[in-house]
């Protein structure tokens, strides 16, 4: 077995339990369903928003209890999360497809599968393009054989972004970012030193993820303006934070 850097072990330890997230999300959907029974069947889009909202709760809890993040002041914690919530949300969806998904379908956090062709047939241009680019990214990460350890590192790389403006402790965030990159590089060299440039490819995938997340936020914001996103939740609060 390759030697795993201590930091990568720590990142893995911080990773939320997938089964717990699945149970929490299913419970939340059942509660919402009972509430909606009086108002008719909720749309698939509304259910997906609730899943995203529940995942956001788990992302915040992951960050709050994680190494390094705990050392930051509350204002810096909020700035970092406001800046990257949609990337972390997309990464959660994308990593699930890479690690456990099947071709042609979307594996949801609840363990259910949705046919991608079903989504395409109901989606407008923006969503179709988002799904397609998302699929391409899944494919790239699949070819790179990105594993659980690397996804755990990537999440921290996304969170500790020194480009976020007006951080009180910018230096700390910068030093953590450097440590994460170092740990990820060391890990990739141990596991796949024969694959030249794999680390650089991983970083390229990250910039594609960032660009996708901007599109996804714009899409959700439009849906919110047309009243299709359920109100009073974390998703809405995050959507408003940057605007």
């Amino acid at each position: 077995a390759p030697r795993m850097p201590q930091l990568v072990k720590e990142f893995l330890r911080c990773d939320p339990d997938e089964l717990q997230l699945r149970t929490q999300t299913t419970t939340r959907l059942l509660q919402e369903h009972a509430r909606w029974e009086k108002h008719g069947e909720p749309s698939t889009f509304r259910l997906l928003c609730l899943m995203a909202d529940q995942t956001l709760f788990s992302i915040v809890e992951w960050a709050r209890t994680s190494i390094f993040f705990k050392q930051l002041k509350l204002n810096d914690q909020m700035k970092l999360l406001h800046s990257c919530w949609s990337e972390l949300l997309l990464l959660d969806i994308i990593s699930r497809q890479v690690l456990c998904g099947k071709e042609g379908s979307l594996l949801l956090v609840t363990g259910q599968e949705m046919g991608l062709s079903d989504i395409d047939s109901h989606a407008g241009l923006t969503l179709t393009s988002l799904v397609q680019r998302g699929q391409e990214l899944v494919e790239k990460l699949h070819i790179l054989k990105v594993d659980r350890q690397e996804f755990a590192c990537i999440k921290f790389l996304i969170l500790f972004n020194p480009d976020v403006t007006l951080l009180e402790d910018h230096q700390f965030v910068e030093s953590v970012q450097a440590q994460i990159e170092g740990a990820l590089l060391e890990y990739t060299l141990c596991t796949s030193s024969h694959l030249l440039g794999r680390f650089a490819h991983l970083l390229l995938c990250l910039s594609e993820l960032r660009s996708l997340s901007t599109l996804a936020e714009d899409y959700l914001y439009c849906k919110h303006l047309s009243g299709e996103v359920p109100c009073n939740n974390l998703l809405i609060e995050m959507l408003h934070a940057k605007r």
Binding site: R64, L74, M78
Partner: peptide, 18 residues
């Protein structure tokens, strides 16, 4: 602004010991 981000602030700042 404070009020706008009330939920995130609460989630990050909640006291686990209570």
């Amino acid at each position: 602004k404070k009020k706008d981000n009330a939920l995130l602030r609460y989630l990050l700042d909640k006291d686990d010991t209570v």
